[in-house]
Structure formats: C-alpha cells, structure tokens
Design a protein around this nucleic acid. Structure first.
Lengths: 115, 115
DNA sequence: CGGGGCGGTATCCTTTTCGACACTATGAGC
DNA sequence: GCTCATAGTGTCGAAAAGGATACCGCCCCG
C-alpha cells in the first residue's frame, strides 16, 4: 500500500495530510499502534488483542509500520521464539493523534451503529 | 470502501480507532476535509486545490463523506450549476485531528522524502 | 461560431488489499 | 507420543479501490 502514495516534492498544502494518513491507513495499522501504547507486546499477544486478524495480515502490517519507522521489532534468540514490538520515538509522537481518533470514534459511535 | 469495515458491537477497545480511521482513509478524503476547513467550496475549486484527482474520484469521495455525515452538499438551481460543499458539525469536530495530521506530516517530511 | 467553464456520468481496466487455509521447526508439559 | 504455544511464511483467489478516457447539456465570452 504505502508505496508511492505520496509523490515528490510537488507537495501542495494538503500533501502532508495525505502522507500522514497513508501511514495510518490499512485496516489494522491504527489499531496496532493503539495497542502498542500499552507497552512492548509480543506477536501473539497483539494478535489476541487486535481481534480477528490473520497472522499473515498482522505480520504484513507490522512490517510496514517498521519500514516506516513507527515501531521497533526486537527478536530474542530463544526457544520458543520471542519477538517484541514497541513504539519507536516517531511512533510515540503519533500517540496523541491515535488517542484523538479513539476519542472521536467513541463520541461518534452512533455513526457506526446505523449500518 | 467504508462499507462493513467496522463490524457490529463486538467492539474491542481498538474498534473505535479502526472505525474512525475508516472514515478518513481513501486517498483523498482527509485532503478534502482539510481543504474544506477554509470554508464552503465549489466542486471545481476543490478539484484544483486537491491536485490531480479525476472528477470521478472526487465525486466518489465527496459522496462517501456526505453519506458519513461529515460534509454537506448544497445545490443551487442556477445556470451554470453551482454546488457548494462544506463541513457539517460532525465534520468540523474532526478538524483538530486533521490539523494534527498535517502538523505531524510536516514535522516528518523526511520520512516521505526518502523513497 | 468556437472555446471554455460548470458539475458531474459511464465505461473499462489495472492495481492493491485482504482473507482463508495450510504449513514450518522447536521445545515444554501431560 | 500427543498436543500446545511461539512466530511466522506461502499460495491462492476474490473483492475493492483507484485511474484513464470520453462524454453530457447548458451558458457566457469573444
């Protein structure tokens, strides 16, 4: 997804908005970011918290978030394997926005009910 | 897009976040919302401001935003036709978030440059 | 009489995204 | 010996999103 969603430097004023959104869209990313605010979390723990996400999708989204520098991935050479995800500094700087989105969503639940 | 992106009431805590994002995603919506903050705007004016969006897509996104109750569409029975779009109250309540996204995007431009 | 702006539609096609399902190696506990 | 948990990967295919192009009636301006 977040491939060439944002063009070059021909950035019209609205471009920054589009760019920011492009990092957050993708059905699971915002939710992942939201759950990571509670602290570093392991793969399957995240899987359980997020809801019905297939491992394939979760991996996928996590990799993209990592590529975008919003989260960090740490592997412990153990058996059974242990991998922990956490917010990077950049990711943490996004927290207020995630929180605002959650607040807004809660306040506008009626919108989603009727459907 | 924003069809059954949000399920029912099986809302896990992260659900509100996902729901909120689902209204904003879709490549152009956030940008449109951003430009509408300047006041009511006509179709082609919006088209120019947003950048290279085809009329088809613009119509499409506007209709979805309208269906979600974020914007209002007013048609003036004139010739030439005159249609103005503006933020609804609900849409206006989203403004701080849009502004935050723009600010974040501006502050993290480096992320989009390297690509 | 030609060209442009107005606010869109219609049709077609390509790209992207998402979900289901199966499968992996390892070790621990029963 | 069986099953469970860990952290994924691979393949397939459907559905959705997005883009290109052409077109509409109507009017004003030159």
């Amino acid at each position: 997804m977040a491939k060439a969603r944002h063009s070059r430097l021909d950035c019209t004023p609205g471009c920054a908005v589009e760019a920011a959104v492009s990092l957050i869209d993708g059905k699971w990313k915002a939710v992942i970011l939201y759950h990571l605010q509670d602290g570093r979390t392991r793969f399957n723990e995240l899987r359980r918290r997020v809801g019905d996400v297939t491992p394939r999708m979760l991996t996928n989204q996590l990799r993209e978030l990592e590529a975008d520098g919003l989260i960090e991935r740490e592997v412990f050479a153990q058996v059974p394997p242990r991998v922990e995800y956490s917010l990077s500094d950049r990711g943490r700087s996004l927290s207020p926005i995630i929180a605002a989105l959650k607040a807004w969503g809660d306040a506008n639940m009626d919108l989603f009910a009727r459907r």
